[in-house]
Design a protein around this nucleic acid. Structure first.
Lengths: 94, 94
DNA sequence: GAGCAATTTAGATTTATTTCTAAATAGTGG
DNA sequence: CCACTATTTAGAAATAAATCTAAATTGCTC
């Protein structure tokens, strides 16, 4: 299921932080890593891989950088699931 | 952060399934467990504990059963975060 | 309060995740 | 093609999560 990957991806604070970073603008991996001096570049690369696998980011090559950009459309499925549970959808069920 | 707990809780398919079960009606742990013959009752109890800690379910004691019921209001924070990322909320932030 | 039914807790095991260091790949520019 | 820069991959170690069995708890009911 795609939703498990999406949710697992954003259940980690570091990865949520990366997504927030990419909200403002697309960035190459190196610049992303600079925001997290406590982590190595390899670790950031690992998180990017998971985000990519979840479809939450896409990559665009330019010069010899790889720019990562947010793809929030993947959240559609999650939102549908949450709303389906009843939040905001209490129409006439009560 | 409360959001990590919420998201980690629903990143597991089993726990999402339990929430879906409780959407229809509150149920005691035993009945919940009956829906998952592949798991022991102790394991279901473990998942219920995590859901409870995340605030996604509440318990109500009646006779000698503990009825678990869904509390979808916890999703508010998650929804706010997702919308904040841009999905559906691209107003004039840039 | 003794016994019973529902549920949780403890402890151990297996599997998955996160992180690091070190090495490898891949694309760019001379 | 060679060297440089950006990034990933591999392999190992540490931490966390999911599951089981067995024992403990808790709250009715008599």
């Amino acid at each position: 299921m795609a939703m498990s990957a999406t949710l697992k991806a954003i259940s980690d604070p570091m990865r949520r932080s990366i997504l927030e970073l990419l909200k403002k603008q697309a960035l190459p991996a190196g610049e992303i890593a600079q925001h997290y001096p406590e982590l190595t570049q390899a670790t950031v690369s690992y998180h990017l891989k998971l985000l990519k696998q979840a479809g939450l980011i896409t990559e665009r090559r330019e010069k010899n950088f790889i720019y990562y950009e947010l793809n929030a459309s993947v959240f559609e499925e999650v939102l549908t699931w949450i709303y389906g549970l009843g939040l905001g959808g209490k129409d006439d069920d009560d």
